[in-house]
């Protein structure tokens, strides 16, 4: 019973954290958003602005994420193969 109460308290803590941090007033127009909408097409040439971000402005992050995938694949292959 006591342990159940602790678990519920933990979930409530996380929930309270999420609710508190998501509330409040926030600007709708942000600098990067304005910048990309204004220059995205002209600077990268990609008609799709999402693409202009992830393969233009932030191509390095995309490279990083493909490396994360490569790591995950190599890790699974390595660990799975030798556990047979």
């Amino acid at each position: 019973m006591g342990s159940r109460a602790v678990e519920i308290a933990a979930i409530l803590v996380v929930a309270a954290f999420l609710v508190l941090s998501l509330g409040g007033e926030h600007p709708e127009e942000t600098p990067v958003r304005a910048y990309v909408i204004e220059h995205g097409l002209a600077q990268t040439g990609a008609a799709n602005l999402v693409t202009s971000i992830y393969l233009g402005y932030r191509a390095f992050d995309t490279l990083g994420e493909t490396i994360v995938l490569l790591l995950a694949v190599s890790g699974v292959v390595l660990l799975v193969e030798h556990r047979r």
Partner: peptide
């Protein structure tokens, strides 16, 4: 800061594999 997140992910997954490397 987002690139930092990507860096932390790369670090983390290589660390998971290296810790278990001797199986």
């Amino acid at each position: 800061i987002f690139t930092m997140f990507v860096g932390f992910e790369i670090v983390a997954i290589s660390a998971y594999v290296l810790i278990a490397f001797d199986r």
